[in-house]
Each structure stands twice: as C-alpha cells, then as structure tokens.
Amino acid sequence: MSTRVVRFPLLLLGAFAALYLIWGSTYLAIRIGVESWPPLLMAGIRFLVAGCLMYAWLRWRGVPAPTGREWRAAGKIGFLLLACGNGGVTVAEHWGVASGVAALAVATVPLFTLLFGMFWGQRNTKLEWAGIALGLLGIALLNLGSNLQASPAGAALILFAAASWAFGSMWGKSLPLPNGPMASAAEMLVGGAVLLIGSLLSGERLTQMPSAAGWGALAYLVLFGSIIAFSSYLYLLKHVRPAAATSYAYVNPVVAVLLGILFAGEQIGSAEWLAMVVIVSAVLLIGLPQWRQRQDELAAAAD
C-alpha cells in the first residue's frame, strides 16, 4: 500500500512536468515549422508518424489491437483534440498569430472544460465559477491586443481549437477508449489521417523542401510534443479531474511567451501581458479545488 502511494505521485508529477514544459515549447516549434511546412500537412505528418511509431511499438510488446468500438471512440477524441484542437492552433500560427499569444488563448481550455462538464453533471465550486468569470475577462483583454486584432480569423480559430480540445477531454472520460498508451496511438492515427485529408482538400502543396529548422521542428513535435506529452495528458485525464489535467494551461503561456520573445523576436503588447496575468490567475483559481481534492485523496490512501 505504502509503495503505491509513494510511486503514484512521482509518476503524476512527471506527467504534469511534461505538459507544463514540453507543451509550452511546442508553440515555438509550430511557429518555426509552419515557415517551411503547410500547416495541415505538418500537423498531419506529426500525428500520423507519432501514431504509427507508438502503435508498432505497443503491438510489438504484445498490447492487443483496439476493438472496433475502441477505434470509433478513439476516432472521435482524435478528431476533436488533434484535428480540430491542435490543427486549429497550427493553422492560426500560420496565419500570423504569435506563438505566445496562441498559448494564451489556449489557456482558456480549463474554462471551457468546466462549462462543458456541466453537461455531464459536474458541479462547479464558487472558486471555479470565479475562475470562469476572470478567464472570460482575460479573453476579452487578449482580443484587445494588436496581435489578435490583426488576425480576427486566427483569434476565432484559436478559441474554437480550445473549445474543441476541452469538449473532447470531457467526452473522452465516458467513452470506451483503448487502455493505456494505445489510446494515444489510436487517437493520433485517426487525427493525423483527418488532418492529411484536410490538407489535400484545402489544396495545400509543398512547393520546396523544408529547411533544416523545419525538419527539426517536426521531429521535436513528433517525439516530445506528441508521443511524450500527449501520452502524459491522456494518463492525467484517467487519474485526475479534467480541469486539473488541463491545468498545464497556466504554465504553457509563460513558457511560450518567453521562448517566442527570446528566439522568434515576437512582441507582446501591454493588453496581452495583462491578459496573461488575468488568465493565469483564473486557471489557478480553477485548479485550487482540484489540488485540494487530490491531496485529500492521497492522504486518505496513506491512512
């Protein structure tokens, strides 16, 4: 009993660290990648390659293939999280939305998660409602910034991507997904295929070979952004409430903004800095009840 209580938090902390740091850096990697790759094509290759690698490795280790029912469930979540969610972010950055600002907008995922949770009978605390209200104020401030005003379509697409990700995160809790990492592999295979179909239908063309930086960005997104971080996210969704699993949103913006300023020369205006403070504060308010509940559960298990 005591061994499980010690090991489980360490694994949990490792999964959170992967989301906080790796996913924060993927916004810059996407920004670099879309300078060489068409956005939907890059996102599709990213998830299809990652999905194939994971699926082949799991099957080699003897993990059973998903059933037809599990494939359908994984397809639904892969479409929402990867095709609509990540694909939307990739296209928005291709349209000129700064990587740090994109991360700020995606930080609204926990707000959408709480709102969608009501459809599944989840009750929100007063702190969580305060976080939702504060987060909506942050969204308004973010849209006052010059970055999103210069790309209204990008702003709308980013918020749609955040809502799709949140809805898929909630829905996935009640779907018969494959067990363990196989869920990640199946979702990436379906999401990658949908993105490649979208690339074909939209007329995207690779007019020249990507640069070394473009290839490096794609490799980083496949290995770290997809296989490691996405698997960590799905693990957390199985072991904590969705609003806690999406708490990476209050660290990712800080990491993404700093990396964008340091390595991509991005400029963040005063309204956007204020929006970051407001949105991060909102997500912290939302996360407090989740962390308290988790600590109570661990304390009860230790007893």
Rank of each mutant, 00 (worst) to 15 (best):
R4P: 10
V5F: 06
R7Y: 08
L10R: 10
L11P: 01
G14L: 15
F16A: 10
F16N: 03
F16E: 01
L19D: 02
S25E: 03
T26C: 08
T26R: 09
L28E: 01
A29H: 01
I30W: 04
R31W: 11
I32T: 09
V34G: 06
V34I: 04
P38D: 02
P38R: 12
P39E: 00
L41W: 00
R46D: 05
F47A: 12
M54K: 08
W60F: 12
W60G: 14
T67L: 12
R69T: 08
E70C: 09
W71E: 05
W71Y: 14
A73V: 04
K76I: 13
I77V: 15
G78A: 14
L81M: 13
G87M: 07
G88H: 07
A92Y: 02
E93H: 10
W95L: 15
G96D: 01
V97G: 11
A98N: 08
S99H: 11
G100W: 04
G100C: 10
A102T: 03
A102P: 08
A102F: 06
A105I: 05
A107Q: 01
T108P: 04
P110Q: 06
L111Y: 02
F112G: 12
F112T: 05
T113G: 13
L114Q: 03
F116S: 11
G117T: 03
G117E: 00
F119P: 02
G121Y: 05
R123N: 12
R123Y: 09
N124Q: 15
K126G: 15
L127Q: 09
A133F: 12
A133Y: 05
A133R: 03
L137M: 14
A140H: 01
L144Q: 14
L144N: 11
Q149K: 14
S151E: 07
P152F: 02
A156S: 09
L157K: 04
A161G: 13
A162K: 03
F167L: 15
G168I: 01
S169Y: 03
M170H: 07
W171A: 14
W171S: 11
P176R: 09
L177T: 06
M182Y: 08
M182P: 15
S184W: 00
A186Q: 08
G191K: 12
V194D: 04
S199H: 11
G203P: 11
R205P: 07
R205C: 07
Y220I: 06
Y220Q: 07
L223G: 06
G225V: 05
I228A: 13
A229K: 07
L237D: 06
K238R: 15
P242T: 05
A244K: 00
A245G: 13
T246N: 15
P253W: 02
V254T: 04
V255E: 05
A256F: 03
V257I: 13
V257W: 02
L258A: 15
F263R: 07
F263T: 03
F263W: 14
F263M: 15
A264K: 08
A264F: 00
Q267T: 11
S270R: 15
A271T: 04
L274D: 02
A275C: 12
M276C: 13
V277R: 00
V278W: 01
A282K: 02
L285D: 06
Q290H: 10
R292S: 12
D296M: 13
D296R: 14
A299N: 05
A299G: 08
A300V: 14
A301V: 00
A301Y: 01
